[in-house]
Design a protein around this nucleic acid. Structure first.
Lengths: 206, 206, 206, 206
DNA sequence: TATGAATGAGTGTTCATTCAT
DNA sequence: TATGAATGAACACTCATTCAT
């Protein structure tokens, strides 16, 4: 695996101004998702993505300055998708209902394309990607907002709790995806049990 | 020269009969751990491991028939370390105490070498490795035994619950390791909160 | 990095669509021939071929998925050359004249590039290559056709006789090439003597 | 395949003076034969031979200064075996009977261990080996002697004829071995037809 | 003398990236 | 701007050979 000596650039090479270019970019990103799903991290290479997208490798590099930039773009697409769904939960009357909604959204997201979600989680742990992948609208800020609602238990160390809750959700949901679970409702219930169990106990002790 | 097309072998190539060889094997495995920690999955290659171990690449391949076999050997070393610690928890008088001990052992294991533990978890998700890496003495069987204790809540779907609990522990503990947490006690408490919270809720609902 | 464990593919990887690519492919095949001639089977490696062809090793692998595929391509090139020459003999009025033509063609082919022809014969004995290298138009079918002519002696076991005749031709012609013989006419006469001698005797005895 | 920069020595390292050493040498040579038969040229390596012989690789190198020396020793063993059998034919009353005997001996030799014989023929074409492998008592001298008998047809170029006859025999017999033929008598008859056919025709024309 | 652990140059192959067309 | 041929550093793995024990 060649990692270029100068750290390869991570931002999209150009904002696609023309609609045709935007389509091309989108098709490349979706091709990346499909390659990741069907061939795994080992089979995830730029040539395969270009082929699947039906564009030349040269075109791919016109829009993405490197492989990592492509991965990041895919992460952002998935994050945006999730955020658009999950943020609706902020309208819920109670914090508990909002949290419930958030959990369900996370489960939905994961079970929609389980392999993809899991592999992106793995990639996200690479420092180079993690830095770039997280925009301002994240799981973290969403959760923090919800945890701040009046009806939610006060926490001594809110950041830590947010981190823990995310870890619980991610852990359970990735594992479920790997096992091939399909039932959103059932998995949602179990994750809910874990999160609310954690919150109730931790609020007391901490 | 690529000759054989059999799916690269995963078992150690030969048992080191001389003490010098045993040292070499151990130093290679430890070097693998260090390379994984310092260079990540991307930098984890057999040449780097041999260099770090201070042996030639040929020596590495005398004892490990392939890269995956080396990874598995490392997994097993860590699993054995964990199991030796965690299985002491079976002596505890109550299931709850045993579970408590198990959780603490998991936390200790993870915080001992956080990056290593996390990357091995990732590798373990590759089917080829998972099959080989898990001996009979695993986290799973340990947990299942504990869940079967009299004082633990009966579960309708014990396998699923075991999976969920492992996912919760792994998720929280990996995330904590990534954040650089060092405090075993504190993390242990929080994981305990999540697990027991989950168990109490799930036993009721399910 | 060794990833796939499929038994290395033998068909050309992609048809060169641009004229530049076709040139590259041809130059690689010819380089393979030259390396084989000058360095023998021992020195026949993909890096040497690429260097001799004046292309990068990557280019070689763009067009040939493996070393064996390259060998096969070279075999086919030589086989086609031979077939184009030898099949003209089918126009001859008598079977005997056709056989004569065929023998001369074989001798010409062999003495054109003796070392190459001999080493390809050796390689062809590897089962994996033999299977792929022989198209429908081969020495065998050519010979069988000629042997079926009216004026040729009936044989009890035609397949065996074809095999024997090929073996006689190959054996004599390879040995002559190794000895450095250059005189096509002379060698042709001797091979003719052996083949017709064999046929006349074997037709009687058998 | 590493061929050492200085041409590796080809003579046996030492004449085994003690009977135990002679046994070891013989067992190594036989192991080489078996490895060649069962694994082919590709699997023919010194470690495999040592393992099969039940000696350490170090011991192998005590008796043979290199891989090629081992190959040559095996060739010599087979040549001696053949010569011991074939030279009995010199007692035959006529040249024709002697030639007949020689052909049968060649066929016997080849069909005894077909794969071995074929692979040694291939190896023998490597110049480094060919030089060393042929002692004074060879197929060639034997054939030349027989061709000089009174009742054999005079040949204008006896060396060439000897070469041709050997080539015919080798070619037919190797091909038969490759096809898996087992019937010594039948193959002997066919080779006899080819050789005598060749001789009678060539004696006239030449 | 026998052992087998150790060596390392060499070989097949991949893939991110560039650039002439 | 789009194409895809070309590049070459990097990596997995082999095997003839050496040498300390």
């Amino acid at each position: 695996m060649r990692r270029s000596s100068r750290p390869s650039p991570l931002k999209p090479r150009k904002a696609p101004s023309q609609p045709r270019a935007a389509e091309t970019v989108a098709s490349i990103i979706e091709a990346a998702a499909q390659v990741l799903e069907s061939a795994g991290l080992e089979g995830f290479n730029t040539n395969a993505v270009a082929r699947r997208a039906g564009v030349s490798i040269g075109s791919l590099y016109q829009y993405f300055p490197g492989k990592d930039a492509l991965t990041i773009a895919l992460m952002r697409r998935e994050a945006r998708l999730f955020y658009e769904d999950a943020s609706k939960g902020l309208d819920q009357p109670t914090g508990e209902a909002a949290m419930d909604y958030l959990i369900r959204a996370a489960v939905r997201q994961q079970l929609r394309r389980p392999a993809l979600a899991r592999l992106l989680d793995v990639e996200e742990s690479r420092p180079a990607l993690r830095r770039e992948a997280s925009g301002p609208d994240t799981f973290q800020t969403l959760l923090a907002t919800i945890m701040g609602r009046d009806d939610m238990p006060r926490q001594k160390r809110p950041n830590l709790v947010v981190g823990d809750v995310i870890a619980i959700i991610r852990g359970m949901v990735d594992a479920a995806g790997e096992r091939g679970e399909k039932d959103v409702k059932d998995l949602g219930r179990r994750v809910r049990a874990a999160v609310f169990g954690y919150l109730s106990v931790s609020a007391g002790c901490d």
